[in-house]
Design a protein around this nucleic acid. Structure first.
Lengths: 139, 139
DNA sequence: CAGTAATCGCTAGACGGCAAACGATTAGGA
DNA sequence: TCCTAATCGTTTGCCGTCTAGCGATTACTG
């Protein structure tokens, strides 16, 4: 009964736990690395843009930004031309995490996929992408 | 950069959203169907047992049980022989959801995997199981 | 040009999830 | 037998996530 969904769910929880302990080593909470990644890619993005990039709602980004701002990873600043907008800017501390965090993430991916051959991994990625597309269509 | 992890993360969010709207049709919140499933399988389980079955911590089950008890899906009762234990028992309302919820879950699984051939689905399941095993080992 | 509509970020409140600490009960050993 | 250790459920507090609703600013339209 719902074989794939159950397996996916279990895997998700295990991967989340791994990612969490990995990121905690750098003083981050689960998901905060993704927010940072968005800023590493485009510093000064707005909460709305980041939310779209992370497949998350705006309030989620707002809350995370507040906490991350409190620990000095980024700063909030209103846009000069459009006063509705807020832009998030990395601090030196936020920028400094890029190397270590990206390495950590690559390392995790490698460990996780170590048991698969190249072919298996390619097939897995392709099939999972199809699942993702189906899910998006049903949304 | 972390190709598989990113894809998996996106897919998880999409599937979660789908499962949530599906279960909301039956008045349930995300994950509550799993707790019910554990009781359908073995009514009178303890929070600890359910937590283990769901790959979740005990406090999570306790909170969910409190809410689900408030809406009349189950009842709490202390074990007669061991007063440390609490057992969760389904109400008629909780039992009545089994058919519809299981059908909903099967339907979702079918829709999600409709784009894959039998072979692709089998390969996907096998590969994902390997990922899961790797993750568990690293935990 | 004025007023309405659209766009944004934010707050409030709820839920699933976790770790840590607490209290009560039972089991086991000196 | 009594005292300690193990076992459980629960509480507390935090984080990520969502929906709904609010307030402010900008854009558009008559």
């Amino acid at each position: 009964m719902a074989e794939f969904l159950d397996l996916h769910s279990k895997t998700t929880k295990a991967l989340r736990a791994l990612a969490e302990t990995a990121m905690r080593r750098h003083g981050l909470h689960q998901g905060q690395d993704h927010l940072l990644a968005a800023l590493w890619e485009r510093d000064g993005s707005t909460p709305g843009e980041i939310a779209a990039a992370l497949h998350v709602t705006t309030p989620t980004v707002v809350k995370m930004a507040t906490r991350m701002s409190a620990v000095g990873l980024l700063v909030r600043r209103r846009d000069e031309h459009d006063n509705r907008l807020v832009r998030l800017w990395l601090t030196d501390a936020g920028r400094a995490l890029r190397g270590p965090v990206e390495a950590e993430r690559r390392s995790l991916e490698e460990k996780i996929t170590a048991g698969l051959t190249e072919t298996e991994l390619r097939q897995l990625t392709t099939a999972l992408a199809k699942i993702y597309d189906s899910a998006r269509d049903l949304l």
